[in-house]
Amino acid sequence: MVTPLTLLHTSPVHVPVFDALRDRNHPGAVLRHLVVPELLDRARAEGPQSVAPELRKLLEGAGGPVLVTCSSIGGTAEGLAADTGVPVLRADRPMAAAAVRGGSGSGGRTRIVVLATVESTVGPTRELLAEEGAGRSVEIRTHLVAGAWDRFGAGDIAGSHRLVAQAADAVTDADVIVLAQGSMAGATELVTTRIPILTSQASGLAAGLELLEGV
């Protein structure tokens, strides 16, 4: 029996996106989707560590490696890997690693602008970039895109992406732009900026499947 890669999402919108990436880049890979929206709701209200008990149960019941696609809770999930014995990867880690390697501005410092639509994502993403950039000269700035999450939550995905694209196009002094949440990826089709923009979904899935192969 083939062991699937479990993808833990906090929104159902991610399921078809990752299935399409699988079909295009990793045909034959077996994915198992687990959608638990209340994890993000609680993390936003009480902080990422508040979801640790439920995350532990979900990881222990996964039956194999887990790719966490929510950047707000990904770090908390990775922190439980050792105790649970379950291989866990946050989907935005490969993106962060690429960001800190992505070009240098004046003085050899890589200037990274992080765009997010949810406040609970900002801290974990900044911490992840700092971790991946340890020993490098990295400047990290964050910007919360006002109104984008409200539109996303109301089902106006296109409107949310337009606001994110406008925020990205307004950035002028960065070497790379990071879209902190997978739900923002569609904005890359609308931007006009020449600054490289990184998203997490394709690289995260590829790394997750590599993690599965190593089990």
Rank of each mutant, 00 (worst) to 15 (best):
P12R: 08
V13I: 14
V13Y: 01
H14Q: 14
H14T: 14
H14F: 10
V15K: 00
V15S: 06
P16Q: 07
P16L: 09
P16H: 01
P16T: 10
P16F: 03
V17A: 12
V17I: 15
F18Q: 03
D19Q: 14
D19L: 13
D19A: 15
A20L: 11
L21N: 01
L21V: 13
L21E: 07
L21A: 03
L21T: 01
R22Q: 02
D23Q: 14
N25I: 12
P27T: 11
P27E: 07
G28C: 12
A29Q: 04
V30C: 08
V30R: 13
L31H: 03
R32Q: 10
H33C: 06
L34T: 08
L34C: 10
V35A: 02
P37Y: 05
E38L: 09
L39T: 05
L39W: 04
L40I: 09
R42M: 10
A43V: 02
A43T: 03
A43L: 05
R44M: 14
R44F: 08
R44Y: 00
A45I: 10
G47C: 11
P48T: 09
P48I: 08
P48S: 09
P48D: 06
S50E: 06
V51K: 08
V51P: 00
V51S: 00
A52S: 13
A52T: 10
A52W: 07
A52V: 14
E54N: 02
R56S: 10
L59W: 01
L59V: 11
E60C: 12
A62T: 03
A62N: 02
G63M: 11
P65E: 08
V66S: 00
L67I: 12
T69R: 03
C70L: 06
C70H: 07
S71I: 09
S71E: 04
S72Y: 09
S72E: 10
I73R: 09
I73V: 15
I73Q: 00
I73C: 01
G74V: 11
G74Y: 06
G75D: 07
G75C: 03
T76V: 15
T76P: 06
A77K: 05
A77E: 06
E78R: 12
E78F: 03
G79Y: 00
G79W: 04
D83I: 13
T84F: 02
G85W: 02
G85L: 11
V86P: 06
P87E: 07
P87K: 12
R90N: 02
A91S: 14
A91I: 15
A91D: 03
R93I: 11
R93P: 02
R93D: 04
P94C: 11
P94N: 07
P94V: 11
P94T: 11
M95W: 04
M95I: 05
A97S: 14
